[in-house]
């Protein structure tokens, strides 16, 4: 069978430049000026899984992302990795979206691109890390959805078996297609991009689509369509009051451990 797979990609600030990121006190948004963007590693793992599936079963891999127009570079990177086509949803109307508005917008973009057997995402983005989008996307698309998928395989044309990582266990699922899978960050190592892949990317389509073409409901987009808003941002006080303990070492140790226990730190005497 040939699979139609979509992979959702988020363009995030390069962790190497985290010390240069600030938060705008007024808008409560990240100020990313001068900070390069990269594809989150978790998203690359999801893309790697999609490419492996395509290599095994044939089909097509479509990458979709929602970001400012500069993210075209990251979309091209996914094409160089081996994706067949890319769609960048980019419009001022999409700005300031929380996870629900993001999932809605991505779902509209996916519907515009056709139908898919599988939609893969990372488990969580490298910046917001809410881990909410995979499930919300599944709901928006009326598809089954799983999160933190460690591995999966096709059982038949319309069923997959997936292993999902839980806190202290794993769960096995059999899921009917189409489905949305949030792929675990440790589910595989993304391939390196080859120079030939970069050349090949020149012949692939990277479409940039605004809402004029997407025609999504405007009140469900961006900041307007986001039921979550950032609250106040304060810097926690790191002030500490010093206290000098006096006496012999034994007395100091007793006093110190007693003070720590009062502070809620459970210290137990080591059995001799």
């Amino acid at each position: 069978m040939e699979l139609k797979i979509a992979v959702c990609i988020k363009s995030v600030p390069d962790p190497a430049y985290y010390d240069k990121i600030t938060i705008d006190a007024k808008t409560k948004c990240l100020t990313r000026k001068g900070v390069p963007s990269i594809i989150g590693k978790g998203d690359k793992v999801a893309l790697e899984q999609a490419l492996k599936l395509k290599e095994k079963y044939g089909g097509k891999v479509t990458v979709i992302g929602m970001a400012p127009p500069e993210a075209r570079f990251e979309m091209k990177e996914t094409l160089a990795m081996g994706a067949d086509e890319a769609l960048l949803l980019s419009d001022r109307l999409f700005a300031g979206a929380d996870t629900l508005a993001t999932a809605y917008t991505l779902a509209q973009g996916l519907k515009k691109m056709g139908s898919f057997d599988l939609v893969l995402t990372g488990t969580e983005s490298a910046d917001g890390a809410t881990a909410q989008v995979p499930a919300q996307l599944g709901e928006c698309l009326s598809m089954a959805h799983l999160w933190n998928v460690k591995q999966f395989s096709l059982l038949s044309d319309n069923e997959i078996q997936a292993t999902v990582g839980l806190e202290h266990a794993v769960a096995e699922y059999i899921v009917c297609l189409p489905a949305v899978l949030g792929i675990a960050r440790d589910a595989g190592k993304p391939r390196y991009i080859t120079a030939s892949g970069i050349k090949a990317a020149n012949c692939k389509t990277c479409k940039v689509m605004g809402n004029a073409e997407l025609q999504a409901e405007e009140n469900r987009l961006g900041e307007t369509g986001s039921p979550t808003w950032p609250g106040d941002i304060t810097i926690p006080s790191m002030k500490r009051q010093g206290r000098v303990l006096e006496g012999s070492p034994d007395v100091i140790v007793e006093a110190l451990t007693a003070a720590l226990r009062v502070a809620g730190i459970n210290i137990q005497r080591k059995a001799v």
């Binding site: 570079f73 091209k76 990177e77 160089a80 991009i193 120079a195 970069i198 990317a201």
Partner: peptide
């Protein structure tokens, strides 16, 4: 060019 920038990024990552 965009292609050259992407090549540098890919080689650097490796």
């Amino acid at each position: 060019t965009e292609e050259q920038q992407l090549l540098r990024k890919a080689v650097r990552e490796f």
